[in-house]
């Protein structure tokens, strides 16, 4: 049996669009999340909604409905000002609002919402490194959730002070201060951020050997962004950032 290109074209189109049509009829074709949070498959919490499945596209209203957390608590915890915007606010919006924090290796985003929900409801969750909670969220948790001493210490350690913001204004804009270029960076502002390169560390007085000892590898190129390097090595940015920042601080003193 032989096929010509016309046959391949027709079969390809029929299979792709036929497959889509068939799965649409069977209600399997979904291009968006149906906002049904997955549940724990076993153990003590079997059948309960799992905060790990909260997606960036979930609104605070979806989360409130799935986990029974008051909308007001969610909105206030994450620094939203306008109560009328709480319900429709999507978790992924946090990353855009608190983008300045992300550049410092601290993330207040969907992961923070998962963490907040898990603590609020006393549910288990594997928290990713670099996930921070706003101070307002910590206060709400201390007041309304049953936390252990260890958990309180942990959330206080990984909390950040956020200005109250609207759902659209980035913190960087609210600060209103221009970011100096690396060459102009004052000694006191030598903080490793999401866009800091190995070269900048060397410019700040850290030697190549000291950096390579920490990353346990040769620096591929001095100009490479440390965060990109950590991504390619599948290493959390924070695990490199903290010891490197200690080195920078030591050199600055």
């Amino acid at each position: 049996m032989k096929l010509k290109s016309l046959h391949v074209a027709v079969i390809t189109l029929v299979l792709i669009f036929g497959g889509i049509a068939l799965t649409t009829v069977l209600d399997l074709w979904k291009t968006t999340n149906d906002k049904v949070v997955a549940t724990y498959k076993g153990g003590e919490f079997e059948g309960q909604s799992d905060p790990a499945d909260i997606r960036g596209s979930y609104t605070f209203d979806d989360i409130s409905n799935a986990f029974g957390i008051p909308l007001e608590d969610l909105g206030k915890a994450f620094g939203l000002q306008d109560p009328s915007s709480f319900a429709a606010f999507q978790c992924k919006g946090l990353e855009g609002i608190y983008v300045a924090l992300k550049e410092e290796g601290k993330e207040v985003g969907t992961g923070s919402v998962r963490y907040f929900v898990a603590l609020y409801k006393g549910l288990p969750l594997k928290v990713e490194e670099g996930t921070y909670l706003p101070k307002a969220a910590v206060e709400i948790l201390k007041a309304k959730a049953k936390l252990t001493e260890e958990q309180i210490k942990s959330i206080e350690k990984y909390s950040v002070d956020l200005p109250a913001v609207s759902a659209t204004a980035p913190v960087s804009e609210l600060a209103g201060t221009p970011t100096p270029s690396p060459s102009e960076t004052p000694v006191t502002d030598r903080v490793i951020k999401g866009n800091t390169t190995f070269q900048e560390l060397m410019d700040w007085g850290v030697t190549k050997e000291e950096i390579e000892k920490i990353i346990n590898d040769k620096i591929p190129k001095p100009g490479i962004i440390i965060k990109d390097y950590s991504t390619t090595k599948a290493v959390e940015f924070l695990t490199l950032k903290e010891p490197l920042q200690t080195l920078v601080d030591r050199k600055t003193k």
Binding site: L3, V8, I11, T12, L15, I16, G19, I20, T23, L28, W29, K30, T31, T32, N33, A38, K41, D53, R55, G56
Partner: peptide, 27 residues
């Protein structure tokens, strides 16, 4: 392992993957 898809991925991507595999088995 968990029964869910990774972040940002939806069932449609899974269905297209299966269609692509079918096409690849044939052509």
């Amino acid at each position: 392992t968990v029964g869910t898809l990774i972040q940002k991925i939806h069932e449609s991507a899974f269905i297209l993957m299966l269609i692509a595999f079918l096409l690849a088995i044939a052509f």
